[in-house]
Amino acid sequence: PTIISGAQSICAGTTAKLSVTPVTGTTVSYFDSPISATVLNPDGGDFTTPALSSNTTYYLQVNKLINGVLCSNPTRTPITITVNPAIVFNGSTLTNASISFPYNQQLPLATGGTPGFTYALASGSTLPAGLSLSSSGLITGTPTAAGDPTFSVVATDTKNCSATATFNFAVTPALALAGAVLPDGITGTLYPTRTIPAATGGTGPLTYSAVSLPPGLTFNPTTREITGTPTQPGNYIIPVTVTDANGYSITSNYTLKVTDPLSLPAASLANGTNGLVYPTQTIPSAIGGTMPYSYAATGLPTGLTFNPATREISGTPTQSGTFPIPVTVTDSTGKTATTTYSITVIDPLTLPPATLADGNENVNYPVQTIPAAIGGVGPYTYTATN
C-alpha cells in the first residue's frame, strides 16, 4: 500500500492519524503490537490514535481475500509516532497593578517542550486597557481602569506545540493620599495630636513615612499620628509617603507652622495729670503667635482712650487715681494673651494761698507756716524768693 500518513511527530496530548491507500484487492488493519489480535480499525479505514503522551509504535497489516478466504501478511509494518516533550505552563495570580502607575510583570515561563517559547493571548482573552503582552511573556503598560481581569495565555515552542494557562490579578484604584490642614504648634507646648488621612487605592498593607518634621515632633507610621512638643519656630513642609504592597508609592506635602507663645511685653506707662493732656503712650507690640494681631483695652481712666490700630493711649484724664489697664491681644488663629498695665493720674500740683502776719521793724516776727502743697507727687521740696 501507499502510506499517506504514517510515522510522524506530534505534540504531547494530541492524536495522530494513520492513513494508507491499499493496493487494489487488499485492505489494511492497524494493531498496537506485533502480535495483537485486536484490530484498531475494524472498518478497514484510517485510524486516529488516542491522545498520546509518549512515543508509541503501531503496526500495519495488509490483508487480501483469496478464494473467499481472508489472508493476512504475517509481517506487520511498524509505524512509530514520536511525541514531542510535554510543555509545562501553569497559571497563577500575578502582582496587582494600580491605575496610573507603570506595570511590568513577567509571566511564569513555560518549561519542557522544545525550548524557544513565544507567548500570546488566547483567542477571546484580553488584558486591561493600557496593558499589553510581549512575545517573551512580559506584561507592560499603565492601566487606566480598575478591575479583576482573568485571561489565558498560549505558550508555543519551536515545534509549534503549545500549552495554555490562565492568569489573574487586580487593577486597583490609583493610590491617593488626601491633603489636610494641620493646626499650628507653639514652642514649649504639647502639640495637639493630629492624624494624617489614610491613603486610598493601591494594594494593602500600606506603609507610611514622614520626614522634615519640626524639632520635637515625631511621626508614628503605624497610627499616622504627629505628636510631641515643638522646640523651634518656623514654617515646615512635611512630605508624607505611602507605599503599597507592590511597591507603588506617592507623596503628599503637609504644612505645619510653629510659633513662639503669644505674649504682650510688659511696659511702664507715664503718669497723667488730672485735667492736663496725657503724653501719648504706645503699648508694646505682641510677639509670638500668628499675625495679624488685634488689640483691646479696658479699665482706662475717664478721659483717656485706646486706639487698637496704633496701640496708643491718649486724651485728657479727668479722674485721679491708679488704674490697672488689661490689654488683650488676639492672633489670627484665635489665641489670646493679656498683660495688665498701670497708669496713675494725679491732681495738679498747687500751693494754696495764705495771708501772712505783718511784721514790725526791730520786733521779732511771729513764725508763719506756708500751707502744704496739694496734688502732684510727693515728697515735695519748697523754695522761696523775694
Rank of each mutant, 00 (worst) to 15 (best):
S132P: 02
G315M: 04
F306L: 10
K257I: 12
I283K: 05
T330P: 00
N360V: 11
Y278Q: 05
L65T: 13
V377F: 12
G204Q: 09
N274E: 13
A174K: 12
N84W: 10
A86Y: 09
Y58Q: 00
G234H: 10
L304I: 10
P366V: 15
N386S: 11
D43A: 04
P379F: 04
T95W: 10
A337V: 05
G321N: 05
P1F: 14
T93V: 15
P317N: 04
Y278F: 06
T385C: 07
Y59I: 01
S29L: 14
V258Q: 04
I99L: 07
T118W: 04
P353W: 13
I35S: 12
S320C: 15
S54K: 10
L138F: 13
V39I: 06
N364C: 12
S132K: 02
G179N: 12
F306H: 03
A163K: 09
P371T: 02
L264H: 01
L65I: 15
V277Q: 15
F169D: 11
T350S: 13
N220H: 08
A16C: 05
T381Q: 12
T369L: 02
T333H: 07
S209N: 11
T21A: 13
N364I: 14
N271C: 15
G179L: 08
L70R: 10
F89H: 03
Y30G: 01
T369V: 08
T166R: 12
A210F: 05
T355F: 07
A384P: 03
N360D: 09
G247W: 01
I99H: 08
T316F: 00
L133W: 00
L138T: 05
G216D: 04
T57K: 00
T241E: 03
F219V: 09
Y254D: 08
L127N: 07
P50R: 13
S54G: 13
T203C: 11
D148R: 15
T21Y: 12
P205R: 08
I81A: 00
N104D: 11
T241Q: 06
L109G: 11
G216Y: 10
N360T: 08
G68L: 00
S249P: 05
L40I: 03
F323I: 07
N235T: 13
I4C: 12
G334H: 02
